[in-house]
Each structure stands twice: as C-alpha cells, then as structure tokens.
Design a protein around this nucleic acid. Structure first.
Length: 340
RNA sequence: GGGCGGUUACCGAAGUAGUCAAACGGGGCAGACUGUAAAUCUGCUGGCACUCGCCUUCAGAGGUGCAAAUCCUCUACCGCCCA
C-alpha cells in the first residue's frame, strides 16, 4: 500500500540544503530515521563500528535518566561498544525542549567530528532531527508553565481572538483547533512583544539521511512483540521505581505510550486493591490480570498509531534515502563519504 | 424433543416500521505540527460518482405493507432453560 521510492542507494548528494554547493565546508552527518521498532539503534551501532562513528540520540525521552526500557534506550553494554551522546542528560519530572536538544546536539556532533570520528544522528523524534539537520533557530522564548496554565483555562475562541489580534500570520497558518499550538504562539508574543518570526534555517552539517524501510504489517508485529519482551525485562518495575523516586504520575502520563499506559495501569491496580474489601484473592487476581492485558493492548495500538504518524513526517521529507538492509546503508555511507 | 433469547458493517455494540449506509467505541487509514513532540490536534472508514446523487447491505430465503435492520413464516448457526 505505502509506496515509497526506496533503495536507490546510488547516492546523489543533492537535495538537502546543507549538502548542496558548499557541502565541502560543513561537517558530514549521517542521520538515521525510521518508525519506532524499525531497528534504528542496532543499525546505528553497526554503522558506528564500521565507520568509526559515535551516536547522537535524537529522542525526546531517552534524554531522561532512568527512562530506559520504556524509551528503548540502548543498554550500558551497547554504550560501551559505541559511544552514545545525549542520553541521560535530563532529570525526569523536569521539562526538556527541542531548543535545548538542538544546542546540545550541535555541540556533540561538532565535537565528534573534531575528534576525527563520524557523527551519526539517530532517533525517532523527528522534530528534533529537523531542528538539527535544518538548523532551526527558534524564538528565544522558553516554555512558561505559569502562563500556559493561565491560557489553558481560556476557551479556544478567546485564544483565537487574542492570536488573531497580535499575530495574524500565525493565526492564518496554525491549526485553529489545537489549543497547545495557539498557546505557544501567544507565549512568544507575551515574552517578546512581537509575532513569531519566520523560521530561520541554517544547517551546519552536510547530511545523509537514511530511512529504514519496513513493511507496515511487520512493523506492527514487531512493536507488539517488543512490548511483551520489555515487560518481561521489567518495564513495569521501571515505572514503579520512577514513581517511588518521586517522579509525578502526571508527568509520566504526559510522556505518552509506555510511561502513560503503565502509569495508568499501576493506578488502576492500586484502586482495585483499595476497593476489594475482603480481599478475595481470586477476583482481585483476575481483575489485575485483566487490567494488565487491557493496558498492554492499548499500548500496542497507541504505538502503531505513533509509528504511523512518524511515517507521515518521513513522507514529506524528500531527503530520505530508504534502505532495507545494513548492507545498503553501508553502501550509501561509503559513497557519501567519498563525495564529502 | 420442548421453551425462550440472540445473529447489525473489520471487531464490539446501539437501533425494533419512514428523518438508516445505519449512533457510539475499538481497530485501520490519511493528514497538520516553529520551544510539552512517543506530546498535541484534524479528517476518512459499504461501493461508485466524489456537486444535488446513484447502487449494494443489517445470518439466508420468502411474505405483509406506500415504506422493513425493524412486523410475519420457514431454514441455518449460537446461548440459556426444561426433558
């Protein structure tokens, strides 16, 4: 169904803004994208080994310490084999944003290159990838929790009226049914006194973007299996521990997927235990089991949808070279490195 | 063998004569996205024409009626109860 013009791995380094023309002056960067469960981490490690590279993770949840199984972080052992950057750099419960990511990623990539190694940017948070590969310079307005909270209480109509008044361009462009977007726009206006400036893009890097091409049905199956194996490895305990360490449930649920559904599951179980009066072991056990099954199923479906949304990004991204095997990736990179 | 209840689109489930291609949920699909992004938000989901529209559906076959997913008869399958 999904027709993608994949696997023309005869590399042509046209396309990407950074890799055209003045490509020679910028740092070469190999980017690996693909939907969740497509095998990015494994490929990255193989490529890093082969080309003497180091990995920069582009993942909005792997940046947090303690979010390991649920975020699909590579193991310590794997990190020993190949250096990984931008893992465990933030505290769970705190905010971390694209802008922060972009700054750190730029630095890490340059650093890797300066040490004579090949930087590999790998991850599924595509906004993060774009911020780096297209060199977004975002308005210097940090998220303002206070203000957001205030604005969230307003009706959508009110927010739209405000936006229309102060930033006609964004008003025309933005999704008028999505309060979060509108609130961010207002936040920028509030702090700068001006409308959101047009996005400046200036990439420091000469990029090769490889996308892992997996058939949809197989991808969904892999996602499902991965949920089960992660649970066996202790993903539920991981969430439980985070909560015991004082990470708020609200924060965890907002992260989505694994952390959301498992937190909800734990809450449900707690409630079950509290409400079963003479704690009849049988019905309680049955209830717990049912809750577990439901939660894991919901997690699987939600992850399918997430993978689908990732593919929507990729479809728009014309720079991606689709590959189906490690071998194809090797070949792409070899010719890329010859050209730059 | 007898009594009753059920059979609705991919799944679950409403609907019990006209306003029903049929609520709702799930699944699936498509999309938006400039600082929460694994987040947030939007649309489609019987077929065809895609503009008023047309065609084929509510287990199967027949019937009543201007009109049936909705009423009647028989058949098939499933569930509970009595033998």
């Amino acid at each position: 169904m999904t027709k993608r013009n994949s696997t023309s791995y005869k590399l042509s380094v046209r396309g990407g803004p950074a890799s055209s023309g003045q490509a020679t002056s910028s740092i070469p960067l190999v980017v690996i994208v693909g939907p969740t469960g497509s095998g990015k981490s494994d490929l990255a490690i193989a490529l890093a080994k082969k080309f003497n590279g180091e990995v920069v993770s582009a993942d909005s949840r792997q940046v947090y310490r303690g979010l390991d199984l649920g975020s699909g972080k590579v193991t310590k052992k794997e990190q020993k084999r190949v250096a990984h950057h931008l893992l465990d750099i933030a505290t769970p419960g705190r905010r971390f944003s694209v802008a922060q990511f972009k700054k750190k990623a730029d630095r890490a990539i340059a650093d890797i290159w300066n040490r004579g190694k090949l930087p590999l940017l790998v991850g599924g948070s595509h906004l993060y990838i774009k911020a780096v590969t297209e060199g977004y310079s975002l308005p210097h307005v940090k998220p303002d929790a206070q203000l957001r909270k205030q604005l969230e209480e307003q009706s959508l109509e009110n927010l739209l009226v405000l936006l229309k008044k102060f930033d006609r361009a964004t008003y025309n462009r933005t999704d008028k049914k999505n309060p979060r977007r509108i609130i961010r726009a207002l936040e920028v206006i509030y702090h700068t006194g001006k409308p959101i400036p047009p996005l400046k893009k200036e990439s420091l890097f000469s990029t090769l973007i490889l996308g892992i091409d997996v058939q949809r049905e197989r991808l969904y199956k892999r996602i499902d299996e991965r949920v089960d194996t992660r649970v066996k490895r202790g993903m539920i305990a991981e969430v439980k521990n985070l909560i015991m360490d004082g990470v708020s449930k609200k924060w965890l649920k907002r992260l989505g997927l694994e952390y959301q559904f498992i937190t909800e599951y734990l809450e449900k179980i707690q409630k079950l235990q509290a409400t079963s009066y003479p704690p009849e072991a049988d019905t309680l056990q049955a209830g717990k089991l049912q809750a577990r099954r439901d939660s894991l199923e919901r997690l699987k479906y939600a992850t399918h949808d997430f993978a689908r949304r990732q593919l929507t990004w990729y479809r728009k991204e014309k720079r991606i070279q689709w590959i189906r095997s490690h071998k194809e990736a090797f070949e792409c990179i070899s010719s890329f490195l010859h050209l730059v």
